[in-house]
């Protein structure tokens, strides 16, 4: 580091803080704070670009004080907020210098095609993508973004994007997806898409959502490389002769052979409070932060963040 004039009273000056110590401090900062320290001086600007700091770009860790995002979906759908997000992404990604391999959007931001494409163009080495809860993504937008990513392996899929849209983009650019998490319901259609377009899938999380039994059996039987399927606190159901039936983990057990069963991760307590709440996805009953927690956490470690 450059030496400058001042020395503190005890004779040890902060100028002696070495590059790697500052990186250690900066490792604890979020993207907003990193942007702040990058403006302190030239040497700090240089240090704030260290690849270690940018491997994971986590917008969910922004504190409300620094960057006010109310904890409700679509809170950021106005033009002003959208522009603010673009400016933040622009600066952060200029510091990241193409070193980002994992991006976690803030759960409550409103994601548009423009944001996604902008991010994709500046994160060609992305491996893991965690989508926010709300936004407006078109098929063209998702495909354009997908074109920039060549190493994408893992996605947390939310209701922000239609399954058809994201899977046709995955197919178009031959993305080799090995890990997926759904925070939206898992139907027969999703099962079919997975079997077709993610043949190398290793880990799948369908945690605390409604999971169609036939879809679940389909992926268990068809995806040979599957190692883990997380159905903790999920409600397994199907429509039989026009009637909705629900199934316990015991029912699922009776329908698959032992080797497949070992791949399932399920709630050991069976009918815990979370299990009971799964079909209560009603914002009037539960605050959104609850859904944010579900989105954050996972029994499969690589799918939590």
């Amino acid at each position: 580091m450059k030496k400058r004039n001042s020395c503190s009273a005890n004779g040890l000056s902060i100028q002696h803080l070495y590059y790697d110590i500052l990186v250690r401090i900066f490792m604890n900062l979020n993207v907003v704070e990193l942007s702040i320290v990058s403006m302190v001086s030239k040497s700090w600007n240089h240090i704030s670009r260290d690849p270690l700091l940018w491997a994971k770009l986590d917008l969910s860790r922004i504190s409300p004080n620094a960057f006010n995002i109310p904890s409700v979906p679509e809170a950021w759908s106005d033009t002003n907020s959208s522009n603010k997000l673009t400016t933040l992404l622009k600066y952060a990604l200029s510091l990241s210098n193409y070193n980002t391999t994992c991006i976690v959007f803030n759960y409550f931001i409103y994601l548009t095609d423009a944001h996604l494409v902008f991010v994709a163009e500046r994160t060609p080495n992305l491996k893991r993508l965690v989508l926010p809860f709300s936004g407006k993504l078109s098929s063209v937008g998702v495909k354009t973004a997908m074109k920039s990513w060549r190493d994408l392996q893992s996605i947390t899929i939310t209701s922000v994007v239609k399954s058809r849209t994201i899977f046709s983009a995955i197919r178009m650019y031959y993305q080799d997806i090995i890990e997926l998490k759904f925070t939206c319901n898992f139907e027969i259609r999703q099962g079919e898409l997975l079997v077709k377009y993610t043949p190398n899938l290793r880990a799948l999380s369908l945690r605390n959502v409604m999971v169609n039994l036939r879809a679940l059996l389909n992926i268990l039987n068809s995806l040979e490389k599957l190692e883990e399927v997380n159905i903790c606190h999920s409600l397994i159901w199907d429509r039989v002769n026009g009637k909705v039936e629900t199934y316990t983990i015991h029912d699922v057990r009776n329908r698959v052979n032992l080797s497949l069963l070992q791949k399932l991760i399920f709630c050991q307590r069976n009918r815990c409070l979370m299990c009971k709440n799964v079909n209560n996805i009603n914002p009037r009953r539960q605050p959104y932060v609850h859904f944010e927690d579900l989105w954050h956490q996972d029994e499969i470690r690589s799918l939590g963040h």
Partner: peptide, 21 residues
């Protein structure tokens, strides 16, 4: 890091005794 959370550029410079170049 906790000291510089939510702080301004000026605060950080002051805290670490750094002059902008």
């Amino acid at each position: 890091a906790a000291e510089i959370e939510n702080q301004s550029v000026e605060f950080v410079r002051d805290y670490f005794q750094i002059e902008s170049d």
